[in-house]
Simulated assay, not measured.
Amino acid sequence: MDENTTISRAGPADLDALAALFDAYRQFYEQPSDLPRARQWLRERLRFGESMVLVAKRGGIAVGFTQLYPMFSSVRTARTWILNDLFVDAGARRKGVARALLDAAAAFAREDGAMGISLETSQDNAAARALYRAAGWNEDATQWYSLGFSKLHH
Rank of each mutant, 00 (worst) to 15 (best):
M1P: 03
D2Q: 11
D2Y: 02
T5H: 03
T6M: 11
I7N: 04
R9E: 13
R9W: 03
A10G: 07
P12M: 12
L15S: 02
D16Q: 09
D16M: 10
A17Q: 04
A19Q: 06
A19G: 09
A19T: 10
A20H: 12
L21A: 02
L21G: 11
L21N: 09
L21R: 00
F22H: 06
D23I: 01
D23C: 09
D23R: 01
D23W: 01
D23Q: 09
A24L: 05
R26K: 06
F28H: 06
F28N: 01
F28A: 04
Y29D: 15
Y29C: 10
E30Y: 04
S33Y: 05
L35V: 04
L35Q: 07
P36E: 01
R39W: 15
R39T: 07
Q40C: 12
Q40F: 07
W41S: 14
R43E: 15
E44P: 11
R45S: 13
L46W: 02
L46S: 01
E50K: 13
S51D: 15
V53D: 12
L54D: 12
R58I: 12
R58Q: 12
G59H: 08
G60H: 05
A62M: 02
V63H: 00
F65V: 07
F65Q: 10
L68Q: 04
Y69G: 06
M71K: 06
M71E: 13
S73M: 02
S73C: 10
S74N: 14
V75E: 15
V75A: 08
T80R: 01
W81D: 00
L83H: 06
L83N: 04
L86A: 06
D89S: 09
A90L: 02
A90D: 08
A90R: 12
A92V: 08
A92Q: 11
G96I: 07
G96D: 13
V97A: 05
A98E: 11
R99G: 01
L102G: 01
D103I: 08
A104V: 01
A105P: 12
A105H: 04
A105V: 01
A109G: 13
R110G: 10
M115F: 14
I117D: 10
S118T: 07
L119C: 14
E120H: 03
E120W: 03
T121C: 13
Q123H: 08
D124E: 15
D124V: 06
A126S: 09
A127H: 04
A127D: 15
R129A: 12
A130W: 09
A130T: 12
Y132K: 00
R133V: 04
A134L: 11
A135L: 01
N138F: 08
Q143A: 15
L147E: 14
L147T: 03
G148V: 10
G148S: 15
F149T: 01
F149I: 00
F149V: 02
K151W: 07
